[in-house]
């Protein structure tokens, strides 16, 4: 039987961001934009959605004189990602 896929993660850009953050401690906005190729505006909206769901934590600060946004995955995000991968397996296997 197919499990329901979390609609928040079942979007290309949000899933890419969560996959990047899964294996690291943190990444900044520039790195995520570089890896996904998304526009800054679109990426910003999707990060906000993930943050509102509690899947990622966003810290805003400065690096030198440049503003810097750092994202990291939360425990809630890790659990949601694990459930999403489990659900995916029911489609594949």
């Amino acid at each position: 039987m197919f499990k329901e896929l979390n609609p928040l993660l079942h979007s290309e850009l949000r899933l890419a961001v969560m996959s990047i953050l899964l294996g690291i401690e943190s990444a900044d906005f520039v790195y995520l934009r570089e890896q996904t190729g998304a526009t800054a505006g679109n990426l910003s909206v999707q990060l906000d959605k993930l943050a509102k769901a509690g899947y990622i934590a966003i810290e805003k600060g400065f690096r030198g004189k440049m503003p810097r946004t750092v994202c990291r995955m939360t425990d809630t995000g890790r659990d949601a990602f694990a459930e999403y991968v489990d659900a995916l397996k029911s489609y594949i296997g």
């Binding site: 290309e12 850009l13 899933l15 890419a16 890896q35 190729g37 998304a38």
Partner: peptide
């Protein structure tokens, strides 16, 4: 290919997860 907000099928999702983890 820039990533967008489109929905993926199961195989595409797994491929994307693997590719992003590998790149990082």
């Amino acid at each position: 290919k820039p990533l967008e907000n489109r929905e993926l099928n199961a195989a595409e999702s797994l491929e994307l997860i693997g590719r992003m983890i590998e790149n990082t």
